[in-house]
Nucleic acid binder design. Structure first.
Lengths: 239, 239
DNA sequence: AAGTGGTCTAGACCACACG
DNA sequence: GTGTGGTCTAGACCACTTT
């Protein structure tokens, strides 16, 4: 035997056992840190280190200053399928909710013009929305939609599926999509909207869609909490 | 003005400026923690909190007990393209390297049989490899390849591209692929192989490929360091 | 008002990396 | 061997949440 595991890793193990024993379920709250620290005969600092470990592993999560909770299972999401958040969450037996935080007609900024077919300064709709799964906020979404293609979109209810509105009200369907995905810490603005601490692990997903006519349709940025999502992609033979 | 940012976030900002000033480049080493703490007139604990923040953001990384370094740019990777690690790293002007850690003929375990067409106990080749970009270890890969389809594979040099071997020596090409991706902390075994600490943020990528005849070809698990990778997926219209 | 999580200090010891 | 990063303690104060 060479090395003894550090205390916080032993504590991690004990916590897992304790959770199992207590049969804590998704979104159940753990006892106060001071209480746990005493129970396991250690310091709050070390306890928090152990909890942070479990947080990184996606076993527990926290909500600002409210405490630690048991992480629910991940949502599976296939970005190649024409199904929106609202639908695929429901299909997996969870309860989706969307809150539109802001909606504006803005001028296309430089960074967006560079990435898309949009001209610098051209008017686009910008939506910022927060999405929940079982009342847990799991992502912040920034949408940019061509204003020319979708007159009057600002007046519609965007608390459900944008794609459905595009399809039903404007006969626009997403066709080609270019997607970028990478792990990225949640920074200040999004962290505040998600009520988590800045620097929490996250997954960034960016998607540009064009419609069935090949025109720019939508640019989408999604800031996901790291433990809420599982991406599933199926790829057929490329000829 | 309501709230003052906590010290470690101010320190984060100062560190970024300091790095810029010093013109530190990819993989350059930062000074010792004690030195930095003194320079910024704070404690090691707080300094480490600031560094951890930057680590989460992918600006700095650490290598076990060796210190803190500047994070190099991410590698872009399109899992829908028939190009292996070796090729796409080179295409982006970086230097790839692969070290085969183990190669074995093993019996298909239960979890693998469940996921694939492989029968429980059937013989498969198992490869564990560590991959580097510019001599920085960025992922651990577990490969399972049908032994029936590839006799003699164990004797070949697997320090480059497996796919190339499959193509050139066995006339097998990956066709359909099912991919799963999610953020996941790097746990004990992989952390040790990557020389990072257990619980570091990571990205898990799992891929099952079948060949041009529709037979099982390969099952692949990749444990990526969170800051090394950017996924790019292009999806055409699904008819 | 009380309790909780978030932050911070000033030490300390150890195991490992590196010269 | 020396210095470094990794870990740990025993406090403390503050801002926020909850009662």
């Amino acid at each position: 035997m060479r090395e003894q595991h550090p205390v916080y890793l032993q504590l991690r193990q004990q916590l897992l056992l304790w959770i199992e024993q207590k049969q804590l379920d998704s979104q159940d709250k753990l006892p106060a840190e001071r209480e746990l620290a005493q129970h396991f005969n250690t310091t709050r600092v070390t306890l928090r280190q152990a909890l942070s470990q479990l947080e990184a592993e996606g076993r527990v999560y926290r909500s600002n200053r409210r405490g630690w909770f048991i992480t629910p299972p991940r949502i599976a999401y296939d970005p190649s399928i024409d199904v929106g958040f609202y639908q695929y969450v429901k299909d997996q037996g969870m309860v989706p909710r969307t809150k539109t935080i802001s909606r504006n007609l803005v001028e296309t900024p430089a960074w967006l013009a560079e990435k898309t077919q949009l001209a610098l300064g051209e008017a686009v709709y910008q939506f910022v929305r927060r999405r929940y799964v079982n009342e847990r906020a799991v992502l912040i979404e920034h949408n940019y939609i061509s204003s020319a293609s979708c007159p009057g979109l600002l007046d519609k209810n965007t608390d459900h599926s944008l794609w459905q509105i595009l399809r039903d009200d404007y006969q626009l369907n997403p066709a080609e999509r270019a997607i970028e995905i990478y792990p990225q810490a949640i920074l200040a603005e999004q962290a505040e909207l998600l009520n988590i601490s800045q620097g929490s692990a996250g997954l960034y997903l960016e998607r540009q869609s064009s419609d069935q006519h090949g025109n720019f349709l939508e640019f989408d940025q999604e800031y996901w909490i790291h433990d809420a999502l599982k991406l599933v992609v199926n790829i057929a033979r490329t000829e």
